[in-house]
């Protein structure tokens, strides 16, 4: 497969130099370029096995957004969005995108990993129009350029996190959909448990300026579990398995 050049896209991940050095093959999701897989002599089936045991994937160029304000919750419900009952919980919507409540007045919307959901774009436009026409007390909080988005997958992921995070993320303590806003490797981060297929997985969002630091820290922490980066094709295979 001929690889796309990530520097020709509209946006690029802060990690693209790391990916190029690791012989990444990029593909276009319809929005921007993401790493499909790494051309390091292993076939994609091996990356799938890697994702099942211990892996990290960069999703930073996938669509995401957020809303904040006293009216954000009721406004989103009026748009047909299912909102979790309490803060620090997340729900996958019927079209695959994920809605997370970071507080009683703050929502985070992440696209599905196949980037099929159009909710992120549609909600962003709708909120701006509604806010201009009526004071909905809902304020758009774009997340695409403020935060990087990583996925850590594999049955050993919780054990690996115990080295770098004080919150107990083991599956029997940290349920599917739970959110921890905490320090990961001394970096402020939002950790969301979102299993991919049957495999224990976490999304991590941190300040985009710390993307390379956190990527290196997590790779270092997962070294003893033989963890390594995988492309999004391996995650897609987990979901469809």
């Amino acid at each position: 497969m001929a690889s796309l050049d990530p520097t020709t896209g509209m946006r690029r991940s802060q990690l693209y130099r790391r990916h190029i050095n690791n012989k990444a093959v990029f593909k276009n999701t319809g929005y921007d370029f993401v790493v499909s897989h790494y051309d390091n002599g292993n076939d994609q089936h091996t990356e799938l096995d890697q994702a099942r045991s211990m892996a990290i994937c960069d999703l930073s160029t996938l669509p995401r957004t957020g809303f904040k304000g006293a009216g954000a919750r009721s406004w989103a419900e009026n748009q047909g969005i299912k909102i979790p009952d309490s803060a620090n919980r997340s729900i996958v919507q019927p079209d695959g995108c994920l809605v997370a409540t970071l507080s009683d007045q703050e929502l985070l919307i992440l696209s599905d990993i196949l980037a099929k959901s159009h909710q992120v774009t549609a909600l962003g436009e709708q909120s701006t129009n509604d806010h201009l026409e009526n004071d909905t007390q809902t304020y758009l909080l774009p997340r695409g350029d403020s935060h990087c988005w990583l996925a850590v997958t594999g049955n050993q992921a919780a054990e690996m996190f115990s080295k770098v995070c004080g919150v107990d993320l083991r599956p029997h303590k940290f349920a599917l959909g739970d959110i921890a806003q905490t320090s990961v490797a001394k970096t402020n981060a939002v950790v969301i448990r979102q299993d991919l297929g049957q495999i224990l997985s976490y999304y991590i969002l941190c300040d985009i300026s710390a993307a390379e630091f956190l990527w290196d820290c997590l790779l270092d922490a997962m070294q003893e579990y033989a963890g390594s980066p995988v492309g999004i094709s391996a995650l897609e295979a987990l979901v469809s398995a």
């Binding site: 803060a87 620090n88 507080s103 004080g166 919150v167 806003q181 905490t182 320090s183």
Partner: peptide
């Protein structure tokens, strides 16, 4: 009150 018990360094 939002996130629960955490290390004071947070």
């Amino acid at each position: 009150p939002l996130n629960g018990s955490r290390n004071i360094s947070e």
